[in-house]
Design a protein around this nucleic acid. Structure first.
Lengths: 156, 156
DNA sequence: CTCAGTGCAAAGGATTTGCATGCCG
DNA sequence: CGGCATGCAAATCCTTTGCACTGAG
């Protein structure tokens, strides 16, 4: 049998994964958290809190913050803090494949980009070497490109 | 004649450079700003605002923030925002050679590390390619390794 | 049934800003 | 002199927290 996963399959896989991660740490997968994960999953880019609340207006901001923290600790969500203003949130690695960010210093939006696998492996190897030399125990790396997005550079 | 720059030469070069950058944008290189640059230059690691004020207690926090912002816009200072708590500040590229960070997720300290030149070039090349594809105008990149520092991992 | 999750409002903490004064060019 | 820079205090903004209530398992 082929590995034919439809978008729907992925959808259920995502939620099954989140559910498992949460219950492992004795957390419940409530409606609110489900909605939150959906919002992040449906977005092409990392979202700020106001953006999340705009997508799902019935979610209370404080609960969203609390849930983002829980999901972050469970390895379901990544927090991206690229300077001034709101933090951005996105699904974490098992749900979203490893990638990096184009951060617009002018409007603050963040776009995802993927690096060549080979280069990524080389990078990891070198970083691990550096870390080892400093007796540093690495968890993950972040590689962001800062600059001006197409929209801000050239407002058509 | 050899290129024999003493630490003192570097010191004056730094300040000459900062002075030039500031005056280009019609800013003054005041005593406070001088002190601020000294504090950053003398530190082995990126500093938070409280750390800066501790080193130079006569500087007013608000002025330091204002000056850091000015210096950042003039390309003299980099702001590093790695999540919760204070932002870290360090001298920017011409004053400090290009490097990356080991960010301890537990105590928040940041250590500088340098990557192999060859790898760095390869990385830049790939990032520029990605950016170009997205019509993104890159200014600089940041590559941070997050994990636990030696001290937090194994508190001797 | 019970304890984790929620919503509201209020607190917290880092950074920014208003305004009168000081000081560099 | 004139205007940028400073210091203080107050304001702002994002995020977290307290508490009473609701809902998931």
């Amino acid at each position: 049998m082929e590995n034919t996963t439809t978008p729907d399959d992925q959808y259920f896989e995502h939620h099954a994964f989140v559910h498992k991660r949460l219950s492992t740490e004795n957390h419940r997968y409530t409606t609110g958290r489900h909605r939150l994960v959906d919002a992040l999953a449906e977005s092409a880019q990392p979202l700020t809190l106001p953006e999340i609340v705009e997508i799902a207006p019935d979610l209370a901001a404080s609960s969203v913050y609390r849930n983002l923290e829980v999901l972050e600790r469970c390895g379901v969500v990544n927090r991206i803090t690229s300077g001034g203003g709101h933090a951005h949130f996105e699904l974490a690695e098992p749900l979203l494949s490893h990638h990096h960010h184009l951060v617009c210093v002018s409007c603050g939006t963040i776009e995802d980009v993927r690096l060549d696998d080979e280069l990524e492996a080389l990078l990891d190897q070198n970083l691990n070497l550096l870390a080892d030399r400093a007796s540093f125990k690495p968890l993950h790396h972040s590689l962001d490109l800062h600059g001006h997005c197409a929209e801000c550079e050239d407002p058509a």
